[in-house]
């Protein structure tokens, strides 16, 4: 497997946040992780990204144990709910940031960023400053900045949480297209049931620091603890039996 997480544990004081985290993920696949606020999903992502140190356990990425490696050497990008664009840099420079850090040649940076701007349908926005963009555009720039450095693994922490329904839907599709085009391996954390089902090739549910992986989406839907059954029940009760919506 491309990503293997083995017996990760993390506690803050007496409270155990992540309990015996064990899962693996094939390359170029997205694992959706559904969980409520405070269930430990952000801590889990931060441990995998190297931003938080685990108390125990191993992280194997592409056959290498990266558990002790610093975040900047892991080639894992963490994307937050907030786009976190650098306000002093324009769109072009925000996307080019990772390439400049890696001291790539100027001609290479220019061509890669232009290509990325086209892919994100932002070709006319390169010189704009972040405050001149809409929420959806900002999130697209944030994606571009992460993907352009070709990360081995992408960690997405509720990336569309702050967007309106329409923009969110467009961004979900854009992410699926980009993930397919760039063969991205990712962990997609969300608290939205529908988004979890839509975005993942595989699906998992996190509760009180424990992660449960499902063999398929049907098993996930059938599990009462995920809340899918409640959701179905809600919509069924809303519409009287034998009556069509339209």
């Amino acid at each position: 497997m491309f990503l293997e997480i083995q017996y990760i544990n993390k506690s803050f004081g007496k409270e155990q946040i992540v309990k015996d985290l064990n899962f693996s993920l094939a390359p170029h696949k997205t694992l959706s992780i559904l969980g409520k606020s405070g269930c430990g999903k952000t801590s889990m992502l931060k441990i995998i990204g190297g931003l938080l140190k685990a108390d125990s356990g191993n992280i194997i990425l592409d056959g290498n144990d990266i558990s002790e490696l610093e975040a900047e050497k892991r080639n894992i990008v963490y994307l937050y709910q907030e786009d976190l664009l650098f306000p002093h840099l324009n769109v072009f420079e925000n996307i080019a940031f990772g390439l400049r850090i890696k001291k790539q040649k100027e001609a290479h940076i220019q061509s890669k960023v232009k290509e990325m701007l086209e892919l994100l349908e932002l070709e006319d926005q390169g010189q704009k400053m972040p405050h001149q963009l809409s929420g959806g555009q900002r999130q697209r720039v944030s994606f571009g900045r992460a993907i352009i450095i070709n990360p081995a693994l992408l960690l997405l922490d509720e990336p569309f949480g702050s967007l309106d329904a329409g923009t969110r839907q467009r961004m979900q599709q854009l992410f699926k297209d980009i993930a397919h085009k760039f063969k991205i391996t990712s962990l997609f954390v969300t608290h939205d049931l529908k988004e979890a089902i839509l975005m993942g090739d595989e699906i998992a549910f996190m509760q009180s620091g424990k992660l449960k992986l499902y063999k398929n989406k049907e098993e996930f839907i059938a599990d009462p603890s995920t809340g899918v059954q409640n959701e179905i029940g809600f919509w069924e009760n809303l519409i009287p039996k034998g009556q069509n919506i339209i």
Binding site: G50, E72, R74, V77, Y78, Y80, L84, F97, I101
Partner: peptide
């Protein structure tokens, strides 16, 4: 979060200070 983002993008502490 911005500092953490810089490090996941491959930047060290110095680049985090100088560039962001």
């Amino acid at each position: 979060n911005m500092e953490d983002l810089v490090s996941t993008l491959g930047g060290n502490r110095l680049s985090s200070f100088t560039k962001v």
